[in-house]
Design a binder for these strands. Structure first.
Lengths: 241, 241
DNA sequence: TACGATTATATGTCTAGACATATAAGTCAA
DNA sequence: TTGACTTATATGTCTAGACATATAATCGTA
């Protein structure tokens, strides 16, 4: 009936899951379609309900189907396209490309948070912050400049971290667990300052990523990354329904 | 022992899952930490192994833990930050902002695929394509211009769809299931053509999104979206570990 | 010391039941 | 027609087992 889809012989629940997924992905079962009831699949595959249930539960967790008591299980409406945008640590990003990574701390200052700092971090109470400016390069060519603010009340250790040796993004990634983050992506043209830092012409396009990171309710850091817009590309590859 | 975390009383496996998730998210169990064995959790929660297993399986599916036979289950290394970048249908995006949506088909042509078309779609065989240029506006201000190619061998219906009435992105979203897509984000400065279409100055920054969409091995469409870079912002909010 | 075989063990999958619970659908009265 | 009550049913959760399987750890040998 069904063609061999994959390797030697996956487990039964995986086969059930794959069978259904295939039918959904090919459009054979369009959004809104009711997939067979558990007891029907139990008969079809000759297994217990728990096995079918495991397959359907995973499909539901992946938002491929929606399960409704008494009604059945239904193929989800095409969800809002959601892309998994991988923006790893810049050092990792560059070395993954097989290019040599260079890093340069341009500026570092520990200070009491100014009104602008508090605004940028979205915090109300005054406290200390570290402001950092640095540059990342690949094969000795400027790759991105970084302008970062770290909230010391959330990350006290950052006061003594050696950001001349290790980029703040890398350090934070290894030392601070985060629960939530937000990226905002936009485009600007390079002003004098950006042009000099990135070694590009004034007026050249730049891709801007503003990232805010939180742990629970606490703001950890706010960072603005500036990439030469014509050379750098952010790639997001993802699956959808 | 454990504080009430949430609502009235979730099911046991959900409580187990939430307990562990909390410990991971607060950093109490850092990356690499071995979480208790299933049989230990069975004792702690006084339930059967299947219940514990369900909780751990879901955490593994969410990439919060990694499970290794004979070794145990371990908190994942901070995964490469992966952002859920919501780029819904532009019409939906604009109406969700409470602004009036405007759409204008600027160009539509059905033709045999040129070498450039085949290259762009990443297909080898010649076939027919629809090339579309259109403009989206919000409150009568240009919001984005779209330049799209649809592979008719994958989406034959697109030959007769009325793209003067409905934007191609919206039409595709409602008529064609997709399995995979890729976004590439970059920045450019507006040339004469883009400046005119977006009603911005030549040399102003533009955010560019190139999106390719596939169903299985078949290419469905390739689209380039151009946004005024200083006004539009792509926001990605996500959770991580 | 290095390598190959053995063993112990944690997870992976599965079963044949059970009871809980939300809800679609049907029933009946106002 | 509307609303309230009842019922049937599909999913949700859970159990107490079972055997499979990958692999870390151990042991024995060259």
């Amino acid at each position: 009936m069904s063609l061999a889809t994959d390797a030697a012989e996956p487990t039964l629940y995986k086969r059930i899951r794959a069978d259904i997924e295939k039918r959904i992905l090919t459009g054979e079962w369009p959004p809104g379609h009711r997939i067979p009831f558990e007891h029907e699949l139990v008969v079809r595959y000759g297994c217990s309900r728990m096995t079918v249930n495991k397959a359907l539960s995973e499909l539901a967790q992946a938002d491929l189907i929606e399960r409704r008591r008494r009604a059945g299980s239904f193929v989800c409406r095409p969800q809002h396209q959601s892309a998994v945008l991988k923006i790893a640590d810049i050092r990792a990003e560059i070395t993954a490309l097989g290019r040599s990574y260079g890093y340069e701390l341009m500026h570092r200052k520990l200070r009491a948070a100014t009104a602008a700092d508090r605004d940028r971090l979205g915090v109300k109470k005054a406290g200390k912050v570290v402001a950092i400016a640095c540059r990342h390069s690949a094969d000795n060519v400027p790759f991105a400049v970084e302008d970062r603010l770290i909230d010391l009340s959330s990350v006290p250790n950052a006061a003594t971290a050696d950001f001349a040796r290790e980029p703040p993004g890398t350090w934070l990634l290894h030392h601070v667990p985060w629960t939530e983050a937000e990226h905002t992506i936009s485009a600007i043209v390079a002003d004098d300052h950006a042009a000099e830092a990135l070694d590009i012409a004034v007026g050249a396009p730049c891709l801007v990523i503003d990232r805010y990171t939180w742990r629970g309710a606490r703001t950890i850091t706010a960072v603005r990354l500036l990439y030469p817009g014509d050379s750098h590309r952010l790639v997001a590859r993802f699956k959808g329904g």
